[in-house]
Design a protein around this nucleic acid. Structure first.
Lengths: 90, 90, 90, 90
DNA sequence: GCGCATTGATGGCTGC
DNA sequence: GCAGCCATCAATGCGC
């Protein structure tokens, strides 16, 4: 269903179309922003490379730190579970 | 080479390390922002779905519009190539 | 699991190993063929270049034509989605 | 330059255009074939997966074998160089 | 040697 | 909840 709640409604109801338009525009706007950030990231890598850093290693570093952060979060989550299990509520 | 221009230099030169640190932090900061935006996009889709829109179609629409934009850019690029090929200078 | 259904089976069952071997060989054969085709394509570009054509533009042309075809397919796909969304059944 | 040797020539010379057309068609034909092969490869992987094989490992196997083959070829090439350097001619 | 284009790998999202 | 699909991202190879 492309736009909803028009079951018994006017086909030319401007609201539904505008709502769809709004949704599309919001998404496209956000994707644009996302791309901007992605480009910024590339720039930083390029700049780093220009300063002699090995971007491949750099990426590894970033990846490892992210992985560590995730694991840390995971452990924290488990810890919370334990705490909840022992006393009640964290 | 992980950090450069320390070939004959002081290992404890704080600058290089700080530079690397700065790079890593900038990247991580940007990736955080990127993730935020990505989450926002998901939210919009979820909200749209909540309003009865078919997200699959919605995504198609977005994809097609993007593709159109890309095609436009591509044609412009090839036009530039032609111009370069024919006349002198771009 | 690298090869299956040997959980309680004979390690020296020739069948599983042969099956794997067959798979690997089929893939490698196909990849060889693929490479041959890729080389043929390169040859055509080289020949075109030898005849004075700008391969960069040539590639653009190919890309645009392919993109057009994709877009056509994409539009057809979304049309199908619409039809499904509106009427019942595709 | 999109098509050559028309500097002082007739714009409507049919030959050049046909040549270009031929080139484009040959490339597109070959790319089609290439895609067919690529799809076949995917099929094999899918089938293997259906038989319980881990495609990720499978891909590694293929990659390693390819790498080995390349290294083997490389070593052979070097060996040839040595042989040429010592006695003359391989 | 650099940049680009293609290809392969990984992770996330959707639908069952 | 998992499997399949898709989009993104890294890596390799090619051409200039």
């Amino acid at each position: 269903m492309t736009y909803p709640s028009n079951s018994g409604g006017e086909m030319d109801d401007p609201v539904a179309g505008d709502q769809l338009k709004s949704i599309v525009e919001r998404i496209e706007r956000l994707e644009e922003e996302k791309k901007t950030i992605a480009d910024d990231i590339k720039e930083v890598y390029a700049e780093a490379k220009g300063n002699g850093y090995d971007t491949k290693i750099l990426r590894k570093v970033i990846a490892i730190r992210k992985r560590d952060a995730n694991e840390r979060a995971e452990e924290e989550a488990i810890l919370d579970l334990y705490l909840q299990a022992v006393g009640d509520r964290a």
